[in-house]
Amino acid sequence: SSGGSSILDRAVIEHNLLSASKLYNNITFEELGALLEIPAAKAEKIASQMITEGRMNGFIDQIDGIVHFETR
């Protein structure tokens, strides 16, 4: 797709992000992006959206560029 990722790509990214949230206590956007094979800024945006929508527990430290995952 030309304008970003398809629905399937997005679903795969979100699935992998949720998997990462179970493996890590926290991770930088750079590391997360590398893990998900997407730019760091996109990793931040998707993580932020999932947390806001209540689909993933955690919070974002924008100063240090880190996602902190919280286990249920």
Rank of each mutant, 00 (worst) to 15 (best):
R72Q: 10
V67P: 02
S48L: 12
T52D: 12
L17Q: 02
I27M: 13
E70M: 10
M56R: 00
A47I: 10
Y24D: 01
L36F: 05
A20I: 15
E31H: 08
S21D: 02
V67R: 01
D61K: 05
L17M: 13
V12E: 10
I38S: 00
L35V: 06
Q49R: 08
S2R: 06
E53K: 05
F69A: 01
A34Q: 10
R55S: 05
I51A: 02
E70G: 14
E70S: 07
L8K: 11
E30Q: 10
G4S: 12
D9C: 07
H68K: 05
L32F: 03
S1V: 12
G4Y: 03
F59M: 07
A40D: 03
K45C: 11
A11M: 11
F59Y: 14
Q62M: 12
A11I: 09
D64L: 15
A34G: 06
I38V: 07
D9H: 06
R55I: 07
A34F: 10
S19L: 15
N16Q: 11
G54S: 04
E37Q: 15
I13A: 05
F29C: 02
G58T: 01
G65C: 05
G58P: 00
L17K: 00
G65N: 07
R72V: 10
Q62S: 13
E14H: 03
A20R: 03
R72D: 10
N57S: 12
A47Q: 01
M50S: 01
S2T: 14
E14V: 06
K45Q: 15
I7Q: 12
I66S: 09
L23E: 07
R10T: 10
A43V: 12
G65K: 10
L32R: 00
M56Y: 03
A34T: 09
F69P: 01
A43K: 00
K42Y: 15
H15N: 14
G3V: 12
A47D: 00
I60K: 00
N57K: 14
I66T: 10
D64N: 15
L23Q: 08
D9A: 06
E70Q: 13
A11G: 08
E44H: 13
N16D: 06
A40F: 05
P39G: 08
H68Y: 15
E37G: 15
F29N: 01
I38Q: 02
I63P: 06
F69S: 01
Q62I: 14
G54P: 00
I60Q: 01
D64R: 15
E44T: 09
R72A: 11
A41I: 09
I27T: 03
G65L: 05
L18R: 06
G54I: 02
K22S: 06
N25C: 11
P39L: 04
L8Q: 11
I46E: 01
M56E: 01
F69M: 03
N25I: 11
L17S: 01
E37L: 10
N25K: 15
N26L: 13
I66P: 01
T71Y: 09
T28M: 02
T52V: 11
P39Q: 05
K45L: 14
P39H: 06
L23Y: 09
I38H: 01
L36T: 01
E44Y: 14
I66D: 03
I63T: 10
G65D: 03
S1Y: 03
E70T: 08
I38G: 00
E30P: 05
Y24K: 04
R72K: 12
E37V: 07
N57L: 11
A47M: 06
I13N: 04
I51G: 00
L36D: 00
D64M: 15
F59R: 13
L8S: 11
E53F: 04
K22V: 07
I60D: 00
G65I: 02
G54Y: 04
L8R: 11
R55L: 07
I7T: 11
T71N: 13
I7N: 13
I51C: 03
G58F: 03
E31T: 06
V67S: 02
A20S: 05
E70I: 11
I7E: 12
S2Q: 12
Y24G: 03
S6R: 08
N16P: 02
G65W: 03
K45E: 15
S1L: 07
E37H: 15
I27Y: 04
L35H: 04
E53S: 09
N26H: 15
G58H: 01
A20T: 07
G58I: 03
D64C: 14
L23F: 09
R55G: 03
L32K: 00
L36S: 02
A40H: 04
L23A: 07
L18V: 07
I13Y: 07
R55V: 06
I7M: 12
E53G: 06
E31K: 09
S48M: 12
I27D: 00
Y24C: 05
G58R: 01
L36Q: 01
I60E: 00
E37W: 07
D9F: 04
G4R: 07
Y24I: 05
A43W: 06
E31D: 10
Y24E: 01
M56P: 01
F59P: 00
D64H: 15
L17V: 06
R72W: 13
E30G: 07
Y24A: 03
A11Q: 12
G33H: 02
N57E: 10
I38T: 02
I27G: 00
R55H: 05
